[in-house]
């Protein structure tokens, strides 16, 4: 797979702070993959997202060292066009909603209007995305008069409708119930099928285990682990680094400790069932 984004020796410090929030970040983001970004609160996950999109430093100010590249070119060189290439869904949906539109439908249209997309096409794309994100029934409501969970889905819709190549999504499910959470992950899966690249901050680790191709672990502003999802989330030592691990991975690890010869530590429930069944059969 080809590299779509890359951070080269990136260190970033917010204004009025005495130490950098991100330290010496080196990572290649490959096209078409879903990346789960995990780690304790305050580890630098949201700042990493802001740096990928260029909000840090262009909006938040502060000092950035190193380079952030999109397709081999520094993101600064894209100017305002970067917004057509990288979509960003904020952690707090209140931040995302424009405040200049009276209905959810208009809110989702807003970005495409700014890009000068023909009206017929806007309508078609907006309807499609509202269906995908399950917010059709909210179309005529005021975006500030819906629940936190609904607002999170509107925020997501208003970004994916722009069809950027890269989607940076910061904790999209914090206010959602289990059903709503799974529907957001289904949207992410649908975006992956459209060959979008997705960088996702999320605490719900069992869902990261199921949907992410790779996991990036942050601690104290640094990347302390990065690799294929199963390799990372089966590493029990991460529990000591403030990273939650899937409940089934903990289960497999404990079974192994107690002598059940599992072929590996599974990270999803389906895989766990398979490896445990196999080990029990072999044990006889």
């Amino acid at each position: 797979m080809s590299t779509i984004m890359e951070c080269k020796n990136v260190t970033y410090q917010y204004p009025l702070t005495d130490k950098p929030t991100l330290k010496n970040i080196n990572i290649k983001i490959e096209k078409g993959k879903v990346y789960g970004v995990v780690g304790e609160n305050g580890a630098g996950k949201t700042t990493f997202c802001a740096v990928l999109r260029g909000f840090a430093p262009s909006f938040y100010q502060g000092e950035l060292q190193g380079e952030v590249e999109l397709e081999g070119k520094n993101i600064v060189e894209y100017g305002g066009d970067i917004s057509t290439r990288i979509g960003y869904v904020f952690q707090n949906p209140f931040t995302q909603i424009s405040g200049v539109k009276d209905t959810v439908y208009e809110e989702v249209c807003y970005g495409l209007e700014n890009f000068g997309v023909p009206v017929d096409e806007i309508d078609r794309r907006v309807r499609e995305v509202m269906k995908l994100t399950n917010i059709e029934s909210l179309a005529m409501q005021n975006p500030f008069e819906i629940s936190g969970g609904q607002m999170q889905r509107v925020a997501l819709a208003s970004v994916i409708v722009l069809e950027p190549d890269v989607l940076v999504i910061d904790e999209p499910t914090s206010q959602l119930d289990p059903e709503g959470t799974e529907s957001v992950f289904e949207v992410i899966k649908a975006m992956k099928e459209k060959h979008k690249t997705i960088v996702l901050v999320e605490h719900k680790i069992d869902l990261i285990a199921e949907y992410a191709d790779e996991v990036i672990v942050f601690k104290d502003g640094e990347i302390v682990a990065h690799g294929p999802t199963e390799d990372i989330l089966s590493d029990m030592s991460l529990l000591k680094k403030g990273v939650n691990l899937p409940q089934v991975a903990v289960l497999c690890s404990k079974l192994k400790e107690k002598g059940l010869p599992l072929e590996k530590i599974a990270v999803t429930d389906k895989e766990a069932v398979r490896v445990i069944e196999k080990a029990l059969k072999e044990r006889g």
């Binding site: 059903e179 289960l251 429930d269 069932v273």
Partner: peptide
């Protein structure tokens, strides 16, 4: 529209009895 904890889902699939909810 709720789901079992993950560990319970695994036990259910394995046919383990006893209404397991903890690792």
């Amino acid at each position: 529209m709720l789901k079992q904890p993950y560990v319970s889902r695994v036990c259910k699939a394995l046919g383990i009895e006893g209404n397991v909810i903890s690792v």
